[in-house]
Design a protein around this nucleic acid. Structure first.
Length: 612
RNA sequence: GCGGCUGUAGCUCAAUUGGAUAGAGCACAAGCCUACGAAGCUUGGGGUUGCAGGUUCGAGUCCUGCCAGCCGCGCCA
């Protein structure tokens, strides 16, 4: 099967050239084929001559000459040497046509790249009783897109929603609810969230205050005052601990209440996932409680391997060259977050046969994951049955900040909920679609209310997701409602717009599909050529986006493609092309662009409506 | 104190992992709907890439040292 990737073909050719002109050794290094940003430099360039020249102490231009002379470019195109030793390549029309034929198939040139083992994507990670806020958007959609990319390449993916459904916080919430005498039957997530926050405040606030007062030698009156406040917190904590004990020992009423909290939380999570177009259902939920029976054996394994030791009553794992150990059992005998994560890795490798586990989790947990991964390596739980090693990676993302660069809060002091954001986005999207549908000459005129709602939703959601996915995940980002729900410029709706425009063009053309798909490729105008190159680079972008876990690459490629199309659309009349063969060729190019755009949007979990 | 991340146009972000003149969007200014959707296109202004060194044909990218901001740092998750 011919390749549809100019870069790949050029790499093959230049490797041969380098092997013949320099040495087999030199050919093993990257031939450094890059897409030319500047069309005056050709389509692609080979930058290998410069680094090879240094290695063999030769003159870069001479080296480039030699390499080029030995490179079997043949039908691929022509090349010339420029600057200090760049080899600029202009691809031949015939070669591009062959590649277009390859892309213009059912798989759009994206060939399967399966892996021997499954990939686990740990995403979403909400806590029971906590409402999803905008911070959860990132883990959920980043994880979903990473999963989609791997799935598209034919890889087995497990989406694991490592729900925070076990431990003291949930017990605190339960005991708070009981003390408030809440009827669990009519419980909403907002109530839960409220109780959760109240419980957190009760327990946390004044511990910190008291500590501070003591360490800073505050006056005795202040300390006593705080200690008095502390008493209620302590009694609340006692109550929570006894609730936790009941839960852990399987007390029927407590377990039933616990299940109720999970149900209420999950109903909301799954609804949001559905609105977001994220593939996440109940079957992907494997929360902390799933591992509860595996915690003691996990700790025992570390003891048996001689990796755990007691320290100040707690059980710790020492990690080389690191001052702070990883605590796997508390002095009171309880287990921690880290214990659960260790057990989860074990399960995922041993039972799910994961060749890679990708944790899509907040960057603040970096140290935690580093320690857990190190502990896993120590005990060897990353080894698969066939002897290969599971790769443990943390796809860390930054925090969501307000425009004042402080943690996001609304005026009331409540966190901005994810639901509120999505509702607003859908509302604005719908308003916009509705407005356009009433304008004369609008292609959406006569659209039913039902369709308008569907399109408005697609546009609004795409805007929000694109805003989050198009940047580097590691950076904190400033939450700006207007920016996240923008429909113009470098946005999701911009891509959708290019797609809808093409759909409208094709339907107006009255050309039979077969006539379009049987026409000959033709692209003489620079805008057409740029569009062709953008199409051809897409499959490789998908592969690298999957391997690097970078959805932003997909966004950038789609924006580039949509932008090339917009320029082409402006410069090259399609329906009123000068002659029939040009008309059909441009229709074919448009149709292929439409399919690639739809594919890209789908990988980002966005709809591609035909009208908007 | 120790460790990590970040610093690019007025604002929000890119930069094919060391390549040629650092690019987009927003905002601003000027054009383009009697050719197919103006959620669009074209053009313009706007930069000492936090600072100072270093490595080399070549640095926003790698190294060293500073500065600033954010985050993390034993029995919460």
């Amino acid at each position: 099967m011919a390749s549809c990737d100019p870069k790949f073909d050029l790499e093959q050719a230049f490797r041969k050239g380098i092997a013949a002109a320099i040495s087999e050794d030199a050919a093993k290094t990257d031939p450094q084929i890059k897409f030319s940003g500047d069309p005056t430099h050709g389509d692609y360039q080979c930058n290998a001559a410069l680094s090879i020249a240094r290695a063999i102490k030769g003159n870069p231009r001479d080296v480039a000459e030699k390499i080029l002379a030995a490179t079997p470019l043949s039908a691929l195109g022509t090349a010339e040497i420029a600057g200090p030793g760049f080899i600029n390549i202009k691809l031949a029309q015939s070669a591009l046509q062959t590649m277009l034929d390859r892309v213009d198939m059912d798989d759009l040139g994206i060939e399967p790249a399966p892996l021997p083992h499954a990939i686990v994507v740990d995403l979403c990670g909400v806590n029971v009783a906590k409402q999803m806020h905008v911070g959860h958007l990132r883990s959920t959609i980043l994880g979903d897109v990473v999963a989609r990319l791997h799935e598209r390449l034919g890889r087995k993916v497990f989406r694991e929603n490592h729900l925070g459904d076990w431990g003291l916080p949930i017990a605190m919430t339960m005991s708070a609810l009981r003390r408030q005498k809440r009827d669990l039957k009519s419980l909403t997530l907002a109530d839960l969230n409220h109780a959760y926050r109240a419980a957190q405040l009760e327990a946390a606030t004044d511990t910190a205050g008291l500590e501070a007062a003591r360490t800073r030698d505050a006056g005795p009156h202040r300390v006593i005052e705080l200690e008095t406040q502390q008493e209620s917190a302590i009694s609340a904590e006692q109550d929570a601990k006894s609730t936790l004990l009941k839960l852990q020992s399987g007390d029927v009423a407590t377990v039933a209440a616990w299940q109720k909290l999970i149900d209420v939380t999950m109903a909301d999570v799954l609804e949001i996932a559905s609105v977001l177009g994220v593939r996440l259902t109940n079957e992907h939920s494997r929360g902390e409680s799933f591992y509860r029976d595996k915690l003691a054996p996990t700790v025992q394994s570390f003891i048996d391997h001689g990796l755990a030791q007691e320290d100040q009553g707690a059980l710790i794992v020492r990690i080389a060259e690191q001052e702070r150990p990883l605590i796997i059992r508390k002095a009171d005998g309880g287990f921690l977050y880290a214990t659960t994560d260790l057990a989860a890795v074990h399960y995922r490798v041993a039972q799910l046969h994961a060749g890679e586990i990708i944790y899509v989790v907040d960057a603040r947990q970096r140290d935690h994951f580093r320690d857990v991964f190190n502990a896993i390596h120590l005990i060897g739980w990353n080894k698969l049955a066939d002897g290969t090693q599971c790769k443990l990676s943390h796809l860390a993302f930054g925090s969501v900040l307000g425009t004042d660069k402080k943690p996001l809060k609304t005026r009331s002091g409540e966190l901005f909920t994810l639901k509120a954001l999505l509702d607003e986005a859908i509302q604005r999207g719908t308003d916009q679609v509705k407005l356009r549908a009433t304008q004369t000459d609008s292609p959406t005129q006569g659209t039913t209310d039902h369709e308008i709602a569907a399109i408005g939703r697609a546009v609004g959601i795409a805007a929000v997701k694109y805003a989050d996915l198009s940047g580097d995940p590691i950076k904190d980002y400033v939450f700006d409602l207007d920016r996240m729900i923008a429909f113009e410029g470098d946005t999701g709706p911009y891509i959708q717009y290019a797609h809808a425009r093409i759909a409208s063009l094709i339907s107006k053309s009255d050309a039979a599909d077969s006539a379009i798909s049987n026409s000959a490729w033709k692209f003489d105008h620079p805008a057409e050529r740029a569009l062709v190159l953008a199409i051809l680079s897409f499959p490789a972008t998908i592969k690298s986006a999957a391997d690097l876990g970078s959805p932003q690459r997909v966004c950038a490629a789609l924006h580039e493609l949509a932008n090339c199309y917009a320029t082409f659309y402006q410069a090259c009349p399609v329906l009123k092309a000068p002659d029939e063969s040009t008309r059909l060729a441009r229709l074919r190019l448009s149709l292929l662009t439409k399919r690639v755009l739809a594919q890209g949007l789908s990988l980002l979990g966005m709809d591609s409506p035909n009208r908007m």
